[in-house]
Simulated scan of single mutants.
Amino acid sequence: MTQDSVNFIDAIDELCDEKGLNKETVISTVEAALAAAYRKDYGKPHQVIRAKMDPKTGDAEMFKVTTVIDDEEFENPEAEITLTDAKKIKKDYKVGDEIIEPMPKEENFGRIAAQTAKQVIIQRIREAERDMIFSEFKDREHTIGNGSVQQIEGKNVIVSLGKVNAILFPSDQIRDENYYVGQRLKVYIKEVAQTSRGPQVLVSRTDEGLIKGLFELEVPEIANETVEIKSLAREAGTRTKMAVIAHDENIDPIGSCVGQRGTRVQSVLAEIGDEKIDIILWDEDVEKFIVNALSPAKCEKIVISSKDNKAIVYVPDDSLSLAIGKNGQNVRLASKLTGWGIDIEKAESQGKDKKLKKDKKNDSDTNSKTTAVSVEKKEIVKEDLPMDEDKNIKEGKK
């Protein structure tokens, strides 16, 4: 064992610690580089040379590998041997076996060979580092990541996620949101792809997955699947509708998402700016689900057409603008949330409709569970009430 070998192994250990690389992968890369350099200076072009390095001492041994093949397929005498000739060496050889022979130990590689080894080592280590980063971030695809703005290139924002820089394209930026270098923000890791220049990570601030991921971080009941986000519709920067359901009858899904004094939902809103969030109760009954989705508007009658997958909802005059929303946003999001086409029409004040309205009021009185709540940043001002009293949030409160 020479001092140079010891220094070489120490350098590999330091490199692995610095780059977070697997030592076995680096050793394998070095072995391939040394084999290529040895073949260039001391071997033949078509030979198969294999290097074996001792990971403790750094000493390397070279071997020539010859593959046993069928006599009729023999083409490369430098790397192959016919089965007939192989059996003359050892009767047990069969097609596919490898004959491994040690090569003379050469202490001094030539200058060109050493340079070749260096280039291959650098290239292979860079590839191993890229593969490791790609694998790590591929596993984090469709999750939330903490980042900081590294630089701004035109309309694109480069976000540092630690080991890799991600791209935030204009289409994934919240409208009217300003970005500056050093700004810390949460992003949704939208796509991770392997390119010739290394892993390319695309992130988003507008994807619905950002809202879902933020609630998973803030609401333990969602993380442990006691409460489930059934569907979500979003127009980034302005409004989101989210339908939730509890798989435990003792848990209020809306109250869980809102949190005591609104702390949980406010933590989410703090990450997305001036965006309103409507949290509504999911219902397997389509009519009830559509009515909940149109909150905070009140509905008097609903007509379902399963054939066309459409619904006509009749609302009182004073709820017409609420049902439609600014520029049609409320009905548009409700339609996307439920998966049904929704038409809003003004209800006529007839006896039948009044009776239906009265029946709906009676149903509401008998069911104290909150069906929807609309929240915007720093809006919830409820007193610090027990969870049961939290259910007194007015339906459709703004």
Rank of each mutant, 00 (worst) to 15 (best):
V120T: 07
Q183E: 12
D359L: 11
I254F: 03
M387Y: 09
I122A: 05
N224P: 12
K91M: 02
V244S: 06
S171W: 04
F63G: 02
I112G: 02
D318S: 14
V265W: 12
I100T: 00
E191T: 15
Q47R: 06
A311C: 07
N224W: 11
N165Q: 04
I280F: 03
C257K: 06
S148N: 11
I272M: 01
L385F: 05
V203I: 15
D10M: 13
W282E: 06
D4F: 15
A323V: 15
E18W: 14
E218R: 05
P170Q: 11
V286Y: 00
E275A: 09
N250G: 10
V258K: 07
F137Y: 15
S171I: 02
D92I: 02
E389V: 12
N362Q: 08
L34I: 03
E376R: 15
T366F: 12
R197C: 00
Q123V: 03
C299G: 00
L356I: 11
A32V: 03
Q123H: 13
D54G: 07
G110D: 02
V192E: 02
E61W: 13
I9R: 10
R332W: 11
P102T: 12
Y93D: 06
Q119L: 04
T66Y: 12
K190T: 08
K378Y: 14
Q194I: 10
E24M: 13
E389Y: 09
T116E: 10
S306I: 12
L322K: 08
E379A: 15
N327K: 15
E348G: 06
K301G: 01
G58V: 05
T57W: 11
D363A: 12
